[in-house]
Design a protein around this nucleic acid. Structure first.
Lengths: 261, 261
DNA sequence: CGGAGGCTTGAACGCTCTCAAACGATGTGG
DNA sequence: CCACATCGTTTGAGAGCGTTCAAGCCTCCG
């Protein structure tokens, strides 16, 4: 148990509006375990018992499933602060595999412990319900994009979603953006534009339900239009408004002032 | 307030395992209003304030959204016993419109009242979380099907999902299956096979992200293969295993014996 | 320097779309 | 009871987007 506490789960629940001290304590007291993974390392397999709840402290991960025809489908990507496989919190077994996309640090809780939180504090229940609900909204959005949109729009939408999800925790997101851990050492600053997405095109393809070849072609088009740039590996987002235009943003994510019951 | 009580929301929470008397009371005491709609009638519009929670008592409904290019996308279908727009429970405004697909009876609650339930009973919170979580699993499944599958598989998957969702409450599902209310009068028994899905092909198309024309063609193929039959309007599911084969059922619901760490 | 993994490009095929038109039931008014 | 309007379904033909197959290239790393 490397560190005595991890604030990442608490931060997830706080999400802007502070918790009561009691609720903070409830979360902080949860027993947890930390785990460091190398890029490409498998976290759990499809069919494994899903009794733990993982939160990403640093790095990124991908949930995927192999279909009968052998093709791989990416179910979701995860970034620092996010809870893995939240979409099947109540399921007993994983219906998808989980892999570290970059070098990653996870914090893991026992689902039974987490469930107990909800008996201890209705407020935490409410917030968890909000998390789930919000996730569903995002999923729904993705569903709409995937089912009908042409490749250009899918890719643009994908890049924007990644950007919006990975940017918040600046420090952590450096694992995904920029050149990776090595370049983060002071003095070696590459001063690369921050908006560089470093996800293998194969993963993008499997996430969007496109072939790798066509994702590549689509990126080339966007590049020729000056919307994105290429830094060898990694995609630099140059013209964000342009990207949004490509994505035909439904943009339901406007700055919402929210207090709710 | 036509009837003094409605058991449909309670049934949703019970879902097999009985509630304590206290919890039952909590739900039964919620103030609600009933509403009858004709086929095609609009329940709410995209952008409307989403402060009510609707449950279908009889009939069926569809959630849809118009995209910038003018095309319509079906977000979800709803059947008796299901909660409408559960995927955006925490949102303040509807991001999609809602329409009665057949003659329908709704029961509606105030979201604030429902939220209060969660403060009163952790058990109800837990169950609601399960509902949300399960919905997400279904959504995820649909996402996988939509993003990559060819038309045949999409249609087959769709028909099976409809069947599995609409069948349970036999009586209510008659509004969707069979010839509709009129034919249900005793004595007029049409004895039509129960597994007849009566959803306009246009809706199916918008749900699957296919063109109406191609949905039709695909249905014809399935018909020629003897998997489904056509009763003029309505699609009769003849060969369920055949359909499942077409759908390449991932069928994550298999009884998996697994111990693992 | 050589290998491995990921990126890039070309060509041909095929699934799905759009456009266009006809058919069939149902319901309405004459 | 028929003519007509309407809505949903059915079918054909041509075009476009994305796939598969098959190479070639680049970059990092041992």
């Amino acid at each position: 148990m490397p560190s005595d506490t991890s604030t990442v789960l608490r931060a997830r629940f706080e999400n802007g509006s502070p918790l009561t001290v009691a609720d903070q304590r409830h979360i902080d007291r949860l027993p947890f375990s930390g785990r460091n993974l190398r890029r490409g390392e498998v976290i759990s397999r499809q069919g494994d018992l899903a009794n733990r709840l993982h939160v990403i402290e640093r790095g990124s991960a991908v949930a995927y499933r192999y279909l009968e025809d052998g093709s791989r489908q990416v179910v979701d990507l995860y970034f620092p602060g996010e809870i893995l496989e939240l979409n099947e919190f109540s399921e007993r077994w994983y219906s998808s595999g989980l892999m570290a996309l970059t070098d990653t640090r996870l914090v893991s809780y026992d689902k039974a412990d987490v469930s107990r939180l909800f008996y201890q504090s209705p407020e935490l229940s409410r917030r968890f319900i909000n998390l789930l609900s919000h996730q569903q909204a995002v999923l729904t959005e993705r569903l709409l994009t995937l089912s009908r949109a042409p490749a250009r729009r899918r890719v643009a939408h994908f890049l924007l979603e990644i950007r919006s999800r990975a940017t918040p925790g600046t420090v952590n997101s450096a694992y995904l953006f920029g050149r990776g851990p090595r370049e983060l050492q002071p003095g070696r600053q590459r001063l690369e534009p921050v908006d560089t997405v470093r996800i293998p095109q194969a993963v993008i393809a499997d996430a969007l339900g496109l072939s790798l070849v066509h994702v590549n072609r689509t990126l080339r088009q966007l590049r020729e239009n000056g919307v994105v740039g290429s830094t060898g590996h990694g995609i630099t987002l140059i013209d964000i408004p342009g990207l949004k235009a490509e994505a035909c943003q439904t943009e339901s994510s406007g700055a919402e002032t929210r207090r709710s019951a």
